[in-house]
């Protein structure tokens, strides 16, 4: 599984789309490319002010998936940016709320 990652310089937005469930078995394949996209050279400003994580294709997010979201969230916070999470499945929304990530990220129904 590969994420679809794009940078919109005009909108200063980094878009990361996950093509399925964000679970332990997919996180292993996803995290390297996401880490690379989030990398900001020391001393440089991040080229984005918003990170949009698109989970519209996901029906389940497990603890490893949540940990990946936390990692993205922390990167966003350190860069002074916001994290938006797009979801479609109500169970994904519930999982994010259960684990209080709604306090730190904007949850948007896609």
């Amino acid at each position: 599984m590969k994420p679809d990652i794009s940078l919109d310089l005009a909108q200063k937005q980094l878009r990361i789309a996950i093509p399925g469930d964000l679970i332990s078995t997919s996180v292993r394949a996803l995290h390297q490319e996401i880490d690379a996209a989030l990398m900001v050279p020391a001393g440089a400003a991040a080229p984005w002010q918003t990170i949009t994580l698109n989970l519209a294709s996901a029906k389940m997010v497990d603890s490893m998936g949540l940990n990946l979201i936390v990692k993205i969230l922390k990167t966003a916070q350190n860069a002074g940016a916001r994290l938006q999470i797009i979801y479609q499945n109500p169970n994904v929304h519930r999982t994010l709320v259960f684990t209080r990530l709604d306090r730190y990220a904007d949850l948007i129904k896609g």
Partner: peptide, 19 residues
């Protein structure tokens, strides 16, 4: 800890409790 300090652990337990 998982909720307030955004640590990358304990979320499995948090999920089990909440579910």
């Amino acid at each position: 800890t998982a909720t307030h300090h955004l640590v990358d652990r304990h979320r499995g337990l948090l999920l089990m409790k909440q579910l």
